[in-house]
């Protein structure tokens, strides 16, 4: 918006507002939302410049000033140095950026940081305290389910969500339930081993 220097501008008419302004390239100023009146109601419009963003990541509140075009993945990695989620395809295909968002498995590359506000975000980095291994991570290590390791954090998150839901998974359930993650080195046999190990643990009341 060209009128970013007047963050509280409720005087704009709907007619004028509908002519969406040309976007100027990244304004260095960090601004609050522009407040506009649409259909008799106030609406907050954020950006295109930087706006304050607060995320709840692994139980911690993290804040930064970011343009709305930052994805959750890029905010986590580049602003908060939470680098368990990897950027591989950046198009919602490979699964390397998999995180839990309000306990749902999602691709962090396909969610905007601004829309992830107010939600609980969990990454592999937050599954277990520093120096400890979550049982799913431990099962990956035991079954040598990582080679280069770049797909591993995303796969660990997907596996965690999967075994929580399918304690006694069939091969078909594994194919579909873990089908949203790809490995290039070829660790699938190890991952199947990890799933089997975790299923055994769950039957015994573990994991």
């Amino acid at each position: 918006m060209s009128d970013q220097d007047s963050p509280k501008d409720s005087g704009i008419s709907r007619r004028k507002f509908l002519k969406i302004s040309a976007i100027t390239t990244s304004a260095p100023l960090v601004l609050g939302p522009t407040v506009l009146e649409v259909e008799g109601q106030e609406v907050h419009v954020f950006g295109p410049g930087k706006v304050p963003i607060a995320l709840n990541v692994n139980g911690k509140r993290l804040t930064a000033n970011l343009e709305p075009r930052f994805t959750l993945l890029d905010a986590l990695r580049e602003k908060f140095e939470v680098t368990g989620p990897k950027r591989v395809c950046d198009r919602g295909t490979c699964g390397a950026c998999t995180v839990l968002l309000d306990n749902k498995l999602v691709y962090a590359c396909s969610v905007l940081a601004i829309e992830a506000q107010g939600k609980q975000i969990v990454t592999t980095d937050g599954l277990a305290p520093q120096g400890q291994l979550h049982p799913v991570s431990a099962a990956f290590v035991d079954n040598d389910a990582q080679q280069c390791g770049f797909c591993t954090p995303g796969f660990v998150m997907a596996t965690k969500a999967f075994v929580d839901k399918h304690p006694n998974a069939t091969p078909d359930e594994i194919a579909r339930g873990l089908g949203g993650n790809f490995c290039r080195c070829g660790t699938y046999a190890g991952i199947k081993g990890a799933v089997a190990q975790l299923s055994g643990q769950q039957q015994k009341g573990g994991a």
Binding site: G84, T124, L127, Q130, L133, A138, D144, G149, T152, P153
Partner: peptide, 8 residues
Amino acid sequence: GPVKASGR
């Protein structure tokens, strides 16, 4: 393994 599987 541990450092990779924990995402660290």
